[in-house]
Structure formats: C-alpha cells, structure tokens
Design a protein around this nucleic acid. Structure first.
Lengths: 117, 117
DNA sequence: GTCCTATATAGCCAGATTAGAATATAGCCA
DNA sequence: TGGCTATATTCTAATCTGGCTATATAGGAC
C-alpha cells in the first residue's frame, strides 16, 4: 500500500526518527528541531516535508512560527503490518529458549557446582 | 540505529513486502518469487539482496537452487520502536472515542427517537 | 515604512536506488 | 562432453535522496 511505503520510508532515516522522538515530548518549532541536529534549517524543513507527506506530523500556524506536532496515527498501520509477523520472531525466540534450556540442562550436569551470582 | 535504517527502508518497497508475505507461507526459490511479480529475475534478485542486507531473509543452497527463507527477527526491533509510539495513536483513538460518545449523547438528546438497527 | 526573525523554496551536487537487457556462473542431466 | 536450468553480476539509464548555499516570503517589532 502507498501509505505504508510513505511511512516506512519516512522512518528509514535516523534524522526523521529523531525528530519524531523529539515531538513525542511535545510540539516544537522548526528552529527547535534544527538546534540539536547539526543540519541546516532547509535540510530539516525537507525532512519535515517528508514526514508531513507520510502524515506523521502536522503543522500549525502561530505568527511567523509553524509549530510541528506528532501525528502518530499512521504508525498504527505500520505496527499492524509488523504484527502479522510477530509469530515468526516469537517462534524463533521460542526455539532459542528451548536451546538455552537444553544448554543449561547440560551445563547443570557438567558444571553442577557453579556458584550463583 | 543502522539496523533500523536497513529494516525500515527494506520495508518501504511493496515488492519487498510482498516477497516477505510470500515467504511467511514457507521458503521459496527465486523463480517462485519472480513468477507472480511481473518483474524480471535480476530485479527480484536485487530486491532479495536488499532484504538480505537487512537480515530479513537468508539463503540456502540446494543444487542450483538458492532457497530463500524469512528471517523475522529484525522485525522485532522495528516493532519495538513503533511500540514506543503506541500510546500516541491510542490516545488519539481515545479522544476520538470520547468525541464519538459525546456525539452520541448529543444525538440522544436531539434525535432521541432514532430507531436502532 | 525598515529591520529582524522564522520558515520555505530554488538550484545544485554527489551518491543511492530501481529498473531492464545482456552476460556470466554454477550445477544437474544425458 | 554439451546442453539446460537457476541464479548472480554487469552495464546503462532514469529517478530519488540528502545535503548544501542562496534567496524569497511572511509576520512581528520599532
């Protein structure tokens, strides 16, 4: 789906993920986002446009400021998509779990007096 | 994080998501993936390389076949990242819920005799 | 009005991505 | 061996990305 394309590719950049993380603490102006980023203001504006196209942020208008706020709704679709695969990684964790238990059992036999920490 | 970059950008392409969906049903050869895709075999091979770099598939070796199988483990990191934002979309759903309830209350007052369906 | 600040847009560049066609490789089968 | 099949690699072209600098716009302050 088109929307998933936009969301996943917006999330594929660490700068944009950092922006979202910052916005999770509350809305911010563009300059507040530029500050800690060591990127230029136009570059941040471009990243914001990408996030906006993906529906992940929305912009207000207050005098000459254009406050940016998080809009997490599109993340739900992404999370749902991932959810379909949850059983696969849990499965492999189960197998790992079994493996670890088996390992402990063997260790228990061979190194039975290991001290607890 | 680098790994998240690779995973999210691998997921940003619908062809690659389709490949993963197909692999969720079991391993497949390259040609089995080319079949329904209307893309050329080299193109699919390239997509597979992207998925492989993200750690999302692994390749076997059986005679001249190189079976591809799903490796969902890296998806867990992506799901965790998204999980940090769950409260935000749930929040907005809550607000929506409140809004809907409020709406119903008002409708109840003004259109109190609306028939149930 | 002029000046200053916040932000957007334009233009540019280097490098990555995506596609296809053509070709190479690797392994089975006769 | 030669031929067939499965897959990878190379080459080329088009498009996208992410960064910059320079410039434009918009709105408050004086």
């Amino acid at each position: 789906m088109q929307q998933l394309d936009l969301v996943f590719s917006a999330l594929a950049d660490p700068t944009r993920r950092a922006i979202l993380a910052r916005l999770a603490e509350g809305e911010a102006t563009v300059n507040e986002l530029v500050g800690p980023s060591d990127l230029s203001q136009p570059t941040i504006s471009k990243h914001l446009k990408v996030l906006e196209r993906a529906g992940l942020v929305s912009r207000g208008r207050e005098a000459q400021f254009r406050p940016v706020r998080l809009n997490a709704a599109p993340l739900e679709g992404a999370a749902e998509w991932l959810g379909d695969y949850r059983r696969f990684w849990e499965e492999s964790l189960d197998r790992l779990d079994v493996y670890v238990k088996e390992l402990k059992r063997k260790e228990g036999r061979h190194v039975s007096k290991r001290r607890r920490r």
